[in-house]
């Protein structure tokens, strides 16, 4: 009985600890901002734990060991030092430390004109439009995946077209709201390579929980090669392009290098190179693409894409096969 209740208490603790190594954890820092926040967290948590132990120790000592009353003068000294002076000093140091972190966390100078990579991320129900603006070169449009080079500070411009969303890459830093009609700017610097899950962190509608992007921190050389490829037009000889265009998919989705130039939904030019499908809702497989074409509203309630389940199955399959090879 007792063992069971202990296990019942430990279960949530276990879950929390397991969360620490997750691709979505702030305690698994891979970026400058997340590292300093994690360090601040550990200092505060461990310091708090030590103070708690000291207070409880003193209580036990006073209650069990030292039954004799203190003199009024020594009691007053204790209250003065342990109750006022030491806490004030500790809090002042902690505050000073936290304030000193701020300039690095949110550099005031961060703006879209910096001479560095600038990534525009626009939240829409329920996906992310991502536009890379390299300092020297053409903008590259993508969706639902944010890649950035390790060791370089990257400026983000955050926008929304409909309701408030919130941008957060837990292992790198954030979060910052995306507000319709505003552009919020901040920057991130990845320090280690990794792949992270980045959920929308402001309730934005029925599929809020299904709105996440994949963040990938990559070595600078690999990143440059990836971005160069992402900027290229799609190369794909599969016959699915014909039904894709004939059924009007191109009115909403763009595939560069084809007639499809819609700007309503996510750009699909290099869909197959992404880690997930439909903003983190499905694994990026051919079957999942076919399913999403046929019943997007079943996968993501409230999705803005209408269902195309009325298409003949062979056309759905052909389109899925085509999209699954857009690398």
């Amino acid at each position: 009985m007792k063992a069971q209740s202990v296990a019942a208490y430990l279960l949530p603790v276990g879950c929390l600890v397991a969360g620490c190594s997750d691709a979505q954890s702030v305690l698994n820092p891979h970026g400058a901002e997340a590292e300093s926040i994690a360090l601040l967290f550990w200092i505060t948590a461990i310091g708090g734990a030590l103070i708690w132990l000291a207070v409880v120790g003193a209580l036990i000592y006073a209650g069990r060991r030292h039954r004799k009353p203190y003199s009024q003068a020594s009691a007053a000294r204790l209250v003065l030092w342990a109750g006022a002076v030491v806490p004030s000093i500790l809090l002042a140091v902690l505050l000073g430390y936290a304030l000193a972190l701020i300039p690095d966390l949110r550099p005031l100078a961060a703006s879209a004109d910096d001479d560095r990579l600038h990534i525009e991320v626009i939240g829409e129900q329920f996906w992310w439009r991502v536009i890379y603006h390299p300092p020297d070169g053409q903008p590259v449009v993508s969706a639902n995946e944010v890649r950035l080079p390790v060791g370089e500070r990257v400026t983000f411009s955050l926008k929304s077209t409909d309701v408030i969303h919130s941008f957060w890459i837990p292992p790198l830093g954030g979060k910052m709201d995306m507000i319709p009609g505003r552009t919020n700017t901040f920057s991130l610097k990845a320090t280690k390579a990794g792949i992270f899950r980045s959920p929308c962190t402001e309730f934005c509608g029925p599929s809020h929980a299904l709105m996440a992007f994949t963040a990938v921190a990559m070595k600078p050389g690999r990143f440059d090669r990836w971005l160069a490829n992402e900027g290229k037009e799609a190369v794909n000889g599969k016959p699915g392009l014909k039904p894709f265009l004939a059924n009007g998919c191109g009115a909403c989705h763009a595939i560069r290098g084809t007639e499809a130039d819609g700007a309503v939904g996510p750009d699909l030019t290099h869909l197959a190179s992404r880690k997930t499908l439909a903003a983190g809702s499905l694994p990026n497989t051919e079957d999942a693409i076919a399913r999403f074409i046929a019943e997007p509203d079943e996968v993501k309630p409230g999705v803005r894409m209408p269902a195309f389940g009325m298409l003949p199955q062979d056309e759905i399959d052909a389109i899925a096969a085509y999209l699954a090879r857009l690398e």
Partner: peptide, 25 residues
């Protein structure tokens, strides 16, 4: 021709303007 992407309105001609469109459009 362009729709109103901001309000998720696609380009009408993406379907109705294509000579090779689905014949049910």
């Amino acid at each position: 021709q362009y729709g109103v992407p901001r309000r998720d309105i696609p380009a009408c001609l993406g379907c109705h303007g294509r000579p090779d469109r689905n014949p049910v459009y």
